[in-house]
Amino acid sequence: MKLFDIAHSRTGDKGNISNISVIVYDQKDYERVREYVTPERVKAHFKGIVNGEVVRYEIPTLGALNFVMQDALGGGVTRSLALDAHGKCLASALLAMDVPAKN
């Protein structure tokens, strides 16, 4: 199954830093998303797009994770040559990640 099936997401941008939230629809999925969707996996998922460090913040009251990704926007929204200079579409790319089905 894909992360898309159990969570939703929104991207924000500040300079050359992108942040992506991952919010579970159902709180009972939070723990396994937290276990599986690690900063290392997210960094590997965005190979070729995210060149810097990926830090993860946990917000259990929201059933949410927040990934902050350095050097992710081609030099920043105001100078990037990319079609989606803000990286707004990155949220959808993250939701394409395969996650193990529930045991």
Binding site: H8, I23, Y57, L62, A64, V68
Partner: peptide, 13 residues
């Protein structure tokens, strides 16, 4: 509300 509160936020603390 959950999507918006984390929008363009880094460390939520």
């Amino acid at each position: 509300c959950k999507e918006q509160i984390l929008y363009e936020v880094h460390d939520p603390k």
